[in-house]
Structures are given as structure tokens and as C-alpha cells.
Amino acid sequence: MARVLEVSGLRKHFGGIKAVDGVSFHVEEGEILGLIGPNGCGKSTTFNCILGQLAPTDGEVRLDGRVVTGMRPSELNRLGVSRTFQLLQVFPQLSVRENLILAGQEHKGTMLSRLLGPRDAGLTAAADRMIGFFKMSHLAGEKAGGLSYGQQKLLDAAMAFMAGPRLVLLDEPAGGVNLTMLGDLKDRLQAMNREQGATFVVIEHNMDFVMSLCTRVVVMAEGRVLAEGRPEEVRRNPAVIDAYLGH
């Protein structure tokens, strides 16, 4: 299978602190990769380095074989890498539909066509399909700020898929979401992967969520990769158990 993302020897040091210290892993097309590890192990920093939010101290990031290390987030996004943030990040003053149109509009046409062309950049139908896919059709016209927390999390995830990305990085999609919504979210993410062939990486603390969603898991501890493999293998790995329970 083709490797969508390849991270090799990634390092990020803040002064003397080695937040990420030589991390290598890859993501294959069509898989759901889980990235787990105790708090402060460098997962989010790894994400931020891959996505150009932070400049890595050392190492290389390749997207479909092409080196993209240190690219600006908006350029990377237009190359097909999209993400969600740990904290909820939707645009509260825009409607659900407008949020999704925004998530797609910069991938179509030019600055000029976005100024002179149609208001919705021709994306209303696509946005409504995405809203329907995430089962939020009854909310399409509501302001995002008026949605419940769980609904906003769903919208947040939906926005990441809007532009038909090669790769989606989800940073704690389940954080703070109640059990019912969690089921919906997992169901939708799996459907996204199965039906649309979407490839994604998930950072998550909720073990049940990760183990039942992901096809492969990378475990990080203290800035390094500790183990990787299928969920049930990783779950039995003594080093992993140690990292989680050891302190």
C-alpha cells in the first residue's frame, strides 16, 4: 500500500526540553492510525510539527513522497492535509453550512473567482452532503455557536473532511463528548474511512475509542515512539502497560 505520510527522525526541542525526540512513523493509504501516549509525551507537538504550526528542530516530513517539512499550514492544507484541534474550533458566528463552505472554499478557484464568483463558491451541495453524512441536516442553518458541545465537535470533524483531503489529523476528537455522541462520532469516522476511503491519524486519550476505531496504533512516551502495531498487540505490550501505569 502507498504511504501517504512519512515522518522520519522528527525532533522538536524547546530550549533544553526535548518535547519530540526522534519520532518516525508512517501512515498508509486508507488506514486509521491511532497516536496515543501519556500526557505530555509529545503527541500534539508532533502533530503541530507535521502541520507546519511549529518548525521542527530536525527531521523530515513527506506527503506522498514529497518533502513538506516546515511548510505553512495553509499551503499544507491545500496540498490535502487537514486537521482538527484539541480545543473546539468552529466559527460560532457562521452557520453550520457556512462553516463547511469555508472549509472547502480556499481549495477551489482563485482569489479572483472567490471574489467575483458565486457566494457559496459552488459548495452548497457538497456542504449539505457532508452535513447529511454527519446527520446534522436539521441544523444546517443554525449558527455554529448555538450548537451543543458534541454537535460542535461533529462539525469540527466534518470541516476537516470537507475539502476531500488526502490525510486528516484529528487531535482528541472525543475529548469532552458524551457517550451517545461518542458512538455517533465513531460511527461517522468509520463510515468516512469505509465509504470514502479517507485516511486519518487520531490522537486520543479515550482507549476504548482508539482501540475500537483504529486499524493500527503508534504509542509515544517521553518524545519517542515506544511501540506500534495492531490495537490488540499494543494493548498487551508490557512496555506500553508500563508507560501508562508506571508513574
Binding site: P73, S74, F85, Q89, F91, E106, H107, M159, A163
Partner: peptide
């Protein structure tokens, strides 16, 4: 409303 998120959406 949120320049960081906007940037991550390709804006």
C-alpha cells in the same frame, strides 16, 4: 473569529 483555525483550513 479564529485565525489559527482559518489557516488550518487553507485560508
Amino acid at each position: 473569529e479564529n485565525p489559527v483555525r482559518a489557516l488550518s483550513l487553507g485560508v
